[in-house]
Computed example of a mutant assay.
Amino acid sequence: MEKQKIRLGISIGDTNGIGPEIIVKTLSDQRILNYCIPVIYGSAALFSSIKKSLQAEHFHFLQVDSADALVNRKVNLINCWQEELVLEPGKPTPESGKASLQSLMAACQDLKAGKLDGLVTAPINKDNIQAEEFRFPGHTEFLTSYFDAAESLMLLVSDDLRVATVTGHMPINEVSGKLSVELLLRKLTILLESLRLDFGIQKPRVAVLGLNPHAGENGLLGSEETDIIRPAIIQLKDRGHLVFGPYPADGFFGMRQFKKVDAVLSMYHDQGLIPFKTLAFENGVNYTAGLPIVRTSPDHGTAYDIAGKRLADETSFREALFAACDIIRKRKEAENPTA
């Protein structure tokens, strides 16, 4: 008997970005249907148009009325709107923002109802998606609220590198004031549990970066390391966890010390994402740890500069799809080890 396939929802992101293109390119490979049942939340007219413009002869989809009627070994598509959507590649518009929100909301509703096993999100424009239902700086914060999670963690993942961030989408001048021992303990606890539950690492090793240059140089260049970061590390070490640091961020990545640990915790967005994207941009995946559901996305944005030019590389989106499948399986194995 064939195992039940993973039902994977796909939100299409900003329709004037590269989201629809990388979805079509990824799902043109029919072998993906051996691993999951993809469910695109979008518009049949839109994807027929994208298919034609890309000359994607191997991309096929089946319209279904709802997630209750999914068909195995097919790319399923659920229409989220009926009106004609005018594409303006490379330009964020109110219409593209509305479409990206309709797609995301429909997928999240089915995921919350248990009709899907996970979600892969194509890139949104964080400005033009804003609406009454979406007053958040990004996917991570929206999903944390929508799925009633107390806390979540942005975790960038590739084959040999995992980088998480304590703070996410916020101005750099607010980062220091946001940090606290309690916040670091919560984020590190999520990271340790995710490494165990979602990645199958029973005794994970985590490196923690400092906030300031040279990790504060013993207080000369800042006190966050001595007052906040080191006390959090000590508490977790006392509980038996393998947590190390704080390390100066530049030297840590320059000396490739990340290869000695299972994950790295950075203090703010760019501190973690710049080295990650430098080392793993093409195959990197953005995973939201700490949620009751599984959500992944490519590690890049809308890429308006190449939208509509058939130049988009689908590798990161494909990796996000496979990562979601892997994490869903790991969670199921953890819940039922004898299955």
Score class of each variant (00 low, 15 high):
Leu161Val: 07
Lys309Gly: 05
Lys309Asn: 09
Cys108Arg: 11
Gly240Cys: 11
Thr144Lys: 15
Ala122Phe: 08
Gln271Trp: 12
Arg239Ile: 03
Pro20Ile: 01
Glu151Phe: 14
Val157Glu: 02
Ile10Thr: 06
Phe258Val: 03
Gln63Lys: 14
Met105Glu: 02
Pro213Arg: 12
Thr15Glu: 00
Asn76Trp: 06
Leu220His: 11
Thr288Lys: 04
Lys277Ser: 11
Leu46Ala: 01
Asp250Trp: 04
Glu84His: 03
Val64Gln: 07
Asp250Arg: 09
Pro248Gln: 06
Ser96Asp: 00
Arg73Asn: 15
Gly308Ser: 02
Glu57His: 13
Ala339Gly: 10
Leu211Ser: 02
Val166Leu: 12
Arg318Gly: 15
Leu54Arg: 08
Asn218Trp: 10
Asn34Arg: 13
Ile328Pro: 07
His58Asp: 15
Val86Phe: 03
Ala249Phe: 09
Gly177Asp: 05
His269Ala: 06
Leu54Glu: 07
Lys112Ile: 06
Lys5Val: 05
Asn76Thr: 07
Phe258Ala: 02
Gly19Glu: 00
Phe253Asn: 04
Asn128Thr: 00
Lys277Ala: 04
Ser297Lys: 05
Tyr41Glu: 01
Ala207Tyr: 05
Gly138Pro: 06
Ala312Tyr: 07
Val39Leu: 03
Thr121Asp: 01
Leu85Lys: 00
Cys108Tyr: 12
Ile78Glu: 01
Asn286His: 10
Asp159Pro: 02
Ile233Asp: 04
Ala67Tyr: 08
Asp127Pro: 00
Ile274Trp: 05
Ser48His: 13
Ala122Trp: 06
Thr226Val: 11
Val120Ser: 03
Arg73Pro: 03
Glu83Thr: 11
Val157Trp: 05
Trp81Tyr: 03
Ile234Phe: 10
Arg73Gly: 10
Phe147Thr: 03
Val120Gly: 05
Asn212Gln: 11
His139Ser: 04
Gln4Thr: 13
Ala303His: 08
Thr226Met: 11
Tyr287Glu: 05
Val261Ser: 11
Ala334Thr: 13
Gly168Met: 15
Asp250Ser: 08
Lys98Val: 00
Gln4His: 09
Ile327Met: 05
Lys112Glu: 11
Leu185Gln: 15
Asp299Trp: 03
Leu220Gln: 12
Leu185Asn: 13
Thr278Val: 08
Ile306Thr: 09
Val163Cys: 05
Leu46Met: 04
Cys80Gln: 00
Arg162Glu: 01
Arg331Cys: 06
Val163His: 09
Ser145Phe: 15
Met255Ser: 13
Pro38Ile: 04
Ala56Trp: 12
Pro137Phe: 09
